[in-house]
Design a binder for these strands. Structure first.
Lengths: 221, 221
DNA sequence: CAATGTGAACGAATTCACAGCG
DNA sequence: CGCTGTGAATTCGTTCACATTG
């Protein structure tokens, strides 16, 4: 282990390892090797060990890793033992779906509120939460120490929403609006563009298609 | 330009470039430089030019790129001029939200159907679509030539769903279930794990937090 | 002695810097 | 003259291979 800069790809994989370890734990499996983890996530054992090596020595040579212990360590590395707090901004279908998405609380995230500009949505129920108006956002973020803002507003409203959140003191933004938003340098931001994922698939399908075209002897132009 | 393997990161960026060019086009902007594109996507101009260079020469030296023309080319590279077809499997909240998500059709994707195993959901309306039972999936995919299957079923049902889709002849899978699914080597698959995104944010927030702790002189242990 | 942890080798992706061209 | 297009240099991430150790 050494104090280096951590590749983002490593962080992403740690999260995936953790989810798989959780499954092993739930199934009562006590030990696992880097090789076995690699198979679960479709990677290499060397990669698994390298990823872990950034943060310490978690295994026993000749034996492998204690599933429970390693998962605890990964959760800690990922900051999940701290009970992360989040709100959803945008009470459209996607916002509501994310508010009620089980995967978040299963991993220790607490969705504390949901907000919308549209007064016809304000007051509506989303599970246990009630949709709040935007003017309550600042106060809510501050007094509840909300850390993560999840943006599910339409593209044109995304930047102003992010600005409100950063002014209120949010630490990180997960943006589902299909635009690039600007954040101050001390705020973490990730864009999840659903269409981009589809387009990457489309690109690779296109490669396959042109292969087939070649095989059958047809010409493109 | 040369016939090399294309980095996936490049493909992802092309999709983002295209979305921004679309915006410029809508605003009546006719020309753009690699520098300006870079600023929009928060990247470097050299990166933009390198990405484009995999596919050809699209610009004019000393001038820049024709917005409309470049966007046409990118859409073509991404296979979007072909009218990609998709179905959603899993008519829960996320499935419904994605079915009605504007971003897909705006980019040329046609969501043709939505399926669910739960008979109490079958027959329900989702926009213009009616939720179909799973036993109709195979026939539907084949006769409509559906290319992309979007998985929004619970984790435990994801693998069997993928198997059904691949048997029916699907070309690509976009998996929102928080598990790793296996696909045959000729099928493209992307996993969008919503919790992973949150956890990566959480990790970097943790780095900030320990910086602050150090600054204030406190010790972690 | 089996599986970890890790320096060294390798390969891939990004950035640099400038030649080439409209 | 300005901006593209691109080899060369560099940085970054992954894989290899083996010494290390419980």
């Amino acid at each position: 282990m050494k104090a280096e800069r951590i590749p983002e790809a490593t962080v992403t994989r740690l999260s995936v390892y953790s989810r798989h370890l959780q499954q092993l734990e739930d199934n009562g499996i006590a030990r696992v090797s880097s090789q076995e983890i690699a198979e679960m996530v479709d990677g290499s054992s060397a990669q698994v060990r390298k990823d872990l090596a950034y943060f310490g020595e978690f295994g026993t040579r000749g034996v492998g890793y204690d599933v429970r212990l390693l998962n605890r360590n990964l959760m800690k590395i990922l900051g999940l033992e701290k009970g992360r707090t989040a709100i959803i901004v945008g009470a459209g279908r996607l916002g509501k779906a994310l508010t009620l998405y089980n995967g978040f609380e299963q991993r220790g995230f607490n969705i504390m509120g949901i907000f919308d500009k549209d007064m016809s949505k304000v007051g509506g129920q989303v599970g246990k939460l009630t949709v709040s108006p935007m003017y309550k956002l600042d106060e809510f973020v501050k007094s509840n120490n909300v850390q993560i803002g999840v943006i599910t507003v339409p593209g044109f409203a995304a930047q102003e929403t992010v600005d409100m959140l950063t002014r209120a003191g949010i630490k990180a933004v997960l943006n589902f609006a299909p635009v690039s938003v600007m954040v101050p340098p001390d705020i973490r931001c990730r864009n999840v563009d659903l269409a981009v994922n589809m387009e990457v698939l489309s690109f690779y399908m296109g490669l396959e298609e042109s292969k087939e075209t070649k095989k059958s002897g047809a010409k493109k132009n």
